[in-house]
């Protein structure tokens, strides 16, 4: 009786999981413009950060922020129960603290095309960006994050940067001399021939390539990048000498390039995680806990005996 119940429960879990893992139709890639406006946040660069995120269709807002953090080599966005607490590691502590006559948090906005920013009704974990790149309209999705303090959330909006500045359309002429797979007059066929850093996704249609190419036109000297590595954790372009990809206002193109040596910011790795295993204080804490637990047991035995 017990055995049968166990087998039934296991089947209930395993079969749908197997079904879920079967390759669903690969979602096409879309370009989403992400604008992060730090406003007066302490420790933040002065200008708003802009990034063209290349993500599968129907990605959530949080996944888009993750892709941005991975590409730019920033700390992953910190979240607590679904609320995005920190972007790029700012603010260092706290999540939606109250103060100054209101709450201090990252407000989430959406926009299609070049309209005005709309306050989001859903959190970053729930909202899915849906776009159809084959449409010939100009209504491409943008995500905006702005740091609001106090009771100003009604009036503060992310910087009004047009979509085309962040994710420029496909260029007519090759802007970059580097032999990147999407370089030059790269169109969809050239794109689909080479693996992208998100190697598991299928190549997107022509509209999706626009984001990559003009980044080189921003002037950073880039060596010949071997983009044959499909690993998710390595940056697509490894050599920009700029320490901060977005502090410098990009003149022509909007897409930011990653700083040098950023390959270590992996999802889930704490910055202080260092070389091997646990930090010293954690081990000491666990040791003290074990000692206390043993002392309690000894004390109880002594009391029962005496």
């Amino acid at each position: 009786m017990h055995g049968r119940a166990l087998v039934a429960a296991a089947a209930l879990v395993v079969l749908p999981a197997a079904a879920a893992m079967s390759p669903a139709s690969a979602e096409s890639e879309i370009c989403v413009a992400v604008v992060v406006d730090y406003q007066q946040l302490a420790g933040a660069p002065g200008a708003p950060s802009r990034h063209c995120a290349k993500v599968p269709n129907r990605s959530t807002g949080y996944e888009i922020l993750l892709e941005r953090a991975r590409t730019l080599g920033r700390p992953a966005p910190r979240s607590e129960s679904g609320l995005v607490c920190a972007i790029d590691g700012l603010p260092e502590r706290g999540c939606g603290e109250s103060g100054g006559g209101g709450y201090r948090y990252w407000a989430y906005f959406h926009r299609t095309g070049d309209g005005s920013w709309q306050y989001s009704n859903r959190g970053a974990a729930d909202y899915r960006v849906i776009d159809d790149p084959s449409r010939s309209t100009d209504d491409r999705p943008s995500e905006g994050w702005v740091w609001v303090e106090g009771g100003a959330e009604g009036s503060v909006r992310p910087a009004a940067i047009p979509y085309d500045e962040v994710c420029p359309p496909t260029p007519k002429t090759p802007a970059s001399p580097t032999p990147r797979p999407s370089a030059g007059a790269a169109t969809a066929p050239a794109r689909s021939a080479t693996p992208t850093p998100r190697a598991s996704r299928s190549a997107g249609p022509a509209g999706a390539t626009s984001g990559r190419t003009p980044a080189a036109a921003a002037g950073a000297p880039e060596p010949a990048a071997t983009l044959a590595n499909p690993s998710l954790d390595e940056p697509p372009r490894p050599a920009s000498a700029r320490p901060d990809g977005t502090a410098v206002p990009l003149a022509a193109a909007g897409s930011s390039t990653p700083p040098a040596g950023n390959a270590v910011e992996l999802l889930g790795d704490a910055p202080g995680d260092g070389s091997s295993g646990l930090p010293v204080s954690t081990i000491a804490g666990i040791g003290v806990l074990a000692l206390l637990g043993g002392a309690v047991v000894i004390r109880l035995r002594r009391a029962d005996r005496g």
Partner: peptide, 23 residues
């Protein structure tokens, strides 16, 4: 004082450390 270790982050997951003063 704003000790970060008092609220270890779970998303992304970090190993919690033991800060000295609270201990």
């Amino acid at each position: 004082r704003g000790l970060v270790a008092l609220d270890p982050s779970t998303q992304p997951l970090e190993v919690p450390t033991v800060p000295l003063l609270p201990a």
